[in-house]
Write a protein that binds this DNA or RNA. Structure first.
Lengths: 219, 219
DNA sequence: ATCATACAGTTGACAGCGTCATCTGAACCG
DNA sequence: CGGTTCAGATGACGCTGTCAACTGTATGAT
């Protein structure tokens, strides 16, 4: 077929890549429940046990997929921020739209991006050890995903700072980000019905940006 | 032990109640994955097959739990709205806090409340029928949960209308609700770090309400 | 050139899961 | 009193994530 794989490192890297791609594809198609290690392995040309050579388990695999997606979004927002042809307002709107686009085009991935990080033990007895380990256990390397997400946040923060000033950037940045996340989430879950609310996600983002811009200029 | 259960209807109703309570408890403890029909049945004093006499499956059971929670939240907001001792602003802040309180005290339940409703088929082949059926199938009666959620939305809408007028109520209501949802969600997922953003969920809600109130008075 | 090692990948096995078909027994109703 | 209904019990099936044990080959030192 294509280029021969001789060295073990190359082969392993290719397998890891194929596993990540297969997991991302299955995630898009049917959500985290459809991401089966057996099916992921099959699509990557290996068997069910192979993923455990690259990830500590299913959760680790999904976390890695999320990390790559955060990096991709971070790159996208970075390109927006450093584009001299765009106004500050356009950059902000673009960054928020980037997030909402993910929630529209890859809703399952979007939910994985905002999975809760720190999970508490809780009290569940008997044969619930599987759940407990899955909740508290050392799930892959969430630190990588966290760092990628924080890179996106930093890029976003810089865009907001250029609009409302460094002083209020963090407060208004948090407000913009959380609100856009909520708009995306409710649209995704079907709770933002246009007939009921007489508005759309895009209109809400527009109002939000306008209100924050005005408030930021006053301060 | 306690009151004797003679009639079949009483017994069935008691079992259904016990199933719902057990499911809610397990949901709080370990999320949807910890809600096992076997464990739910055990805690309700029945066996694994019994829940299928009251719900079409696990998803239907969780939907029923969500419906009851929405009704509870709706009652709570209704009480706020009709409380003559509260100002319109206080009512709004209280309603938003009611939602955020759920996300703090019962994070897993909160996520179930905002699970996506309409799910699309998608293209996944081979042995993925389980996923497909779970995604598209007739999952219990989501209509009940939808109606309960819409009741909450109506109550919330009335509160907003009293503050910004009937004309802009829907637009600003949607903005307030989605934003609060996003604040709750990001706090829940750990992406709203106080050290990073130099703000808290409560401060964000305060700013949000203030901005919307000012914008609504202008219009 | 040879050999021991590391290690990606395979395989077998296990417990737990959701779900259905089948069966049972007691409450129901004519 | 006898038939029916139906909540619940039980057996079975295929699926899942996970791990222990195994295999074979590229690697690196000799």
């Amino acid at each position: 077929m294509m280029g021969v794989m001789t060295t073990r490192a190359e082969s392993a890297a290719a397998t890891r890549r194929a596993l990540l791609d297969a997991a991302a594809e299955l995630l898009d198609l049917g959500g985290p429940e459809a991401v089966t290690l057996r099916e992921v392995g099959a699509r990557a040309g290996v068997t069910r046990g192979a993923p455990y050579r690259h990830f500590t388990g299913k959760d680790s695999l999904l976390t890695a997929v999320a990390a790559e997606s955060w990096e991709r979004i971070g790159d996208q927002v970075h390109a927006l921020r450093t584009d001299p042809a765009l106004s500050a307002s356009e950059k902000l709107r673009g960054a928020l739209r980037a997030l909402i686009d993910v929630s529209r085009n890859q809703p399952h991935l979007y939910q994985v991006l905002f999975r809760r990080r720190a999970k508490l033990p809780g009290q569940l007895g008997d044969g619930m050890d599987r759940i407990r380990r899955q909740l508290c256990g050392p799930e892959g390397d969430p630190a990588v995903a966290d760092r990628a997400a924080e890179r996106f946040q930093d890029e976003f923060l810089d865009i907001v700072a250029a609009l409302v000033g460094e002083r209020n950037a963090r407060h208004y940045g948090a407000l913009l980000l959380t609100s856009a996340h909520g708009i995306a989430g409710m649209e995704l879950s079907g709770h933002l019905d246009t007939d009921r609310w007489h508005t759309t996600a895009d209109e809400l983002v527009g109002t939000l940006v306008r209100m924050v811009t005005e408030a930021g200029e006053m301060a």
